[in-house]
Design a binder for these strands. Structure first.
Length: 268
DNA sequence: CGCTAGTCCTGTCTGC
DNA sequence: TGCAGACAGGACTAGC
């Protein structure tokens, strides 16, 4: 569910908590902590210095290199609430109480996500690929990482070691916009196709951020509200419906174990 | 090293 | 209505 645009949307909302201090931390489910390099009470009283994003990870930076790294997996949400609100929703595993009358709530039904209590976020991101919205992501970079690759382009786009932040929805949407079939092998893409794909990846992500992400089912932004980009998808989740460009029925096929949606007439 | 299939977990939908 | 089975936006790992 939550891919780069969704995490970026959460991050933007959460920025209003920069400068607030951590009061207490509730760990309601121990196994949601992927690493525990420090005890939660060590950061009581610390100020939130920054809230950043790397790929699909959200990073809450505290003082002296302490940080809380959040990944939402498939079904996770991370949102804020007034401290006075006392209803505990189901599947809430972690709560960060702040001194600004707000609490940050981590909730994850399937528990594929997790939280890192880390003192060095760089370690978590050591293997991670380029940020697709940064200047480092160029058509040349994309061409380089696809060279000699025998896996399908769909599978390669989902590989976080190559590009950080794409998931199933935006991989399908970017391939539609670049007019490339998801089952094509990475090495088979021509330079002009790679150029189109590079542009499409950036466009698809930027447009979704403007619409505060895609809410298919579980995703909510930092205020626990739905996004709007689900109303603008061209292929994802639209199997059997008309291609918005040519009218042909959108096909759905499993590629690399993931459902993949495309128009067999527009994409080659 | 690159690639694929299996696995983790719960909720929801489909078909009998 | 009830139930079994398939499937879901992610990402590790084991094994070839």
């Amino acid at each position: 569910m939550p891919e780069l645009p969704e995490i970026e949307t959460v991050r933007t909302a959460m920025e209003m908590n920069i400068g607030a201090r951590v009061q207490t931390i509730d760990v309601l489910r121990e196994d949601i902590l992927r690493v525990r390099e420090y005890e939660p009470d060590e950061v009581h009283g610390q100020v939130i210095c920054a809230i950043s994003r790397r790929g699909k990870f959200l990073v809450i930076s505290l003082e002296k290199d302490y940080c809380i790294v959040v990944h939402l997996g498939m079904s996770g949400r991370f949102y804020m609430q007034e401290e006075s609100r006392e209803v505990l929703e189901p599947h809430v595993h972690f709560i960060l109480h702040l001194d600004n009358e707000r609490k940050l709530i981590y909730r994850d039904t399937r528990r594929f996500g997790g939280i890192w209590l880390s003192r060095d976020a760089a370690v978590i991101f050591a293997q991670m690929g380029v940020e697709p919205l940064s200047a480092d992501f160029t058509a040349e970079y994309l061409q380089k990482v696809l060279l000699n690759r025998k896996a399908s382009i769909k599978t390669l786009l989902l590989n976080q070691k190559l590009i950080a932040g794409l998931g199933n929805i935006y991989a399908d949407e970017a391939l539609f916009e670049a007019r490339i079939q998801p089952g094509r092998l990475g090495a088979s893409l021509q330079p002009r196709e790679i150029k189109r794909l590079h542009q499409a990846i950036r466009d698809v992500l930027l447009r979704s951020i403007e619409r505060r992400g895609t809410t298919f089912r579980d995703y909510r932004d930092g205020f626990n509200s739905s996004g709007e980009n689900q109303h603008f998808l061209n292929v994802y989740g639209r199997e059997g419906l008309a291609c918005p460009h040519c009218g042909r029925e959108i096909e759905m096929e499993r590629i690399g174990g993931r459902s993949s949606h495309y128009c067999a007439r527009c994409q080659h």
